[in-house]
Design a protein around this nucleic acid. Sequence first.
RNA 1: GGCCCCGUAGCUCAGUUGGAUAGAGCAGCGGUUUCCUAAACCGUUGGUCGGCGGUUCGACUCCGCCCGGGGCCUCCA
Length: 674
Amino acid sequence: MPSATITVFVNRFEGFLYRHLERRLAQQIRKFLHRSYGLDLPKIVIEQPPRVELGEYALPLAFELAKKLRKPPRKIAEEIVAGIGPIDDFERLELAGAGYINARVKREQLASALSADERPKAEVPRGKVLVEHSSINPNKAAHIGHLRNAILGDTFVRLLRFAGREVDIQNYIDNTGVQVADVIVGFLHLEKKSRAEIEALTRLPRFDYFCWDLYAQVSRWYEQDKQNRDARVQVLHALEEGGNETAAIADLISLAVLRRHLETMDRLDIEYDFLPRESEILHLHFWDAAFAKLKDAGVLSFETEGKNKGCWVMRRGKVIPKEAENTEVAEEDQKVIVRSNGTVGYVGKDIAYHLWKFGLLGRDFGYRKFYRYPNGHDCWISTTNGDPNHPHFGDVAEIYNVIDARQAEAQNTVVEALRGLGYNEQADHYTHFSYEMVALTPRCAAELGYELSEEDKARSYIEVSGRKGFGVKADDLIDTLIASAKKEVDSRHPQLSEEERMTIATQIAVGALRYFMLKFTKPSVIAFDFKEALSFEGETGPYAQYAVVRASNIFRKGGFDPDTFAGDVASYVSTDDFEKYLNGADGNEIWELWLASSKTSYVIDQCIATTEPAYLAKHVFQLAQLFNTFYHRHPILAEPDESRKRFLLATVAVVRRELTRALAVMGIAVPAAM
RNA sequence: GGCCCCGUAGCUCAGUUGGAUAGAGCAGCGGUUUCCUAAACCGUUGGUCGGCGGUUCGACUCCGCCCGGGGCCUCCA
């Protein structure tokens, strides 16, 4: 096909789909207001009418203009409707209610564009995006709180990639901190294990579970006698120094636990590209480089008096203007970055890490391959002397840190440090992707066998605590979900092989879990409860998966391949057919399904702009719900009218495609049967 | 004490830039399977949107105060 023809074809359809029509409508309105009233509104509010019969877009514009133009809203709306003239791909504007202007699109146009899967080119911002998520301390098994983090992070990555962005996924490994030190203390002082014995233990299929219990034990041991904490201080010292027996043991343990975390997350189709470790931040002297910059820029100051005497501190809160030279900062407003013993705290290392992320540090990690996923993708880890032949990490344009809301202040400190260094551009592209924690309901805690105080029983939720060994381990939850799904699949599909049934059960389990973690908006604390998390009915992942499976079943039983059909709808359904079946009272109901299908990319844009994946979960559910209603009402294969049958099949094909696509962005696969 | 988050149906939650009659799932009650159809569908019960005041033509949404719940404010990470 000559390229000129392709260009014409693309231009013909460019501008379709929900968000593009919205933009076009706004432009026309803006032009009209300028032309007729000499008004230039900064924002044209466009919303969706409560019912599809009223149109596809609603403008409450006239209410806003009533005072400005000294006319009743209805009058203004009338003038706009009468005066605006034709708009491409819109049927007409209508006056409604007390002064709403509703816009109707040409349904058959939108439907044929959607069925042809026209996706207008979006302007993709330049530069790579870095998403940091998971970042679980490598000293114990991952729990449900980590699952929320990883699922949010992974879904956000998929959203960005859907929008055409290039994304690096990093998982920061704090392998030299207190938590790892504690578990080492457990192995050395409580278990009294040698390095060889520990090495043997790391080969346990769930070594992270062993550490989970040991970590809780160590915490209790510290409580028994404050002196026991000296062991931790010694271990921490050895880790910071490196190159000794304790550090070797720490490496053994943290890498083994890390490997387990990667396996756990891989069960949910969550992968990482690079694992930067704190040990390299220390040993490759990232901090020294960052420290020098921070001192030069005056971001850090050395305290010679008071409670922070001997520390390098940063001001907290608003940056004080340069003119205010003599401003003494209250001790409470100082953030200690370097302790009086010369060691650097967590935030300091984080500042160095973030300078590296933006390519501002002037140093780089060493890299080696650490983990190969079954699909062949390699995950790299930091090291001191690495493989020179490595991909380029860091040096990105934008970063998103998926970290829970409790660390908001530490995140702000890092951003302030960037600003203090004059990196405002980078600070503006630093997003703390903040979300609330996962807690347990008292009932759930009781089910798990924890003793609850009267006070705890009265709470609406209780915080998970790795230190106390209080929580639901990620693998346990996944196992339970798979077992539960497997039981159902076994009874529904006894004719399938064990392997097939297991695959389906796993997909359902993952769908249920990922959907569960995504359906809550980020600021909402999830009060975890097995009954809800294990549900496969109602607003759940399996509900949406089931809708797609039903759609596929229609094609299978009808002897069509759904993807082939979806790829060639135009030869089965004409624009005239779309016009015939999508209009009128009868058409409204099915049109609602088409309209919802057209909104997927629009919703994805909103998810990115607001860093809120929950909108996509909501969209998927609504689409599945509309489809189920449609499915129940229209026996498609039994439809006697051939052209109507083809139209109904086109409807199924498009919904199936959009739902599958949206689920994939949520990391949810569609089973072959359910 | 300072800062942040939450408070919407019995329970768990949506409600985006203020807009048309406040929605969904679960639970409850009553129905629907020789079908592409029950992990589903239909119907039904259930609300002083924590309270008071303010801004606005219009407030669940914005502002102020108060009440209740949670979190953060360590030379922890």
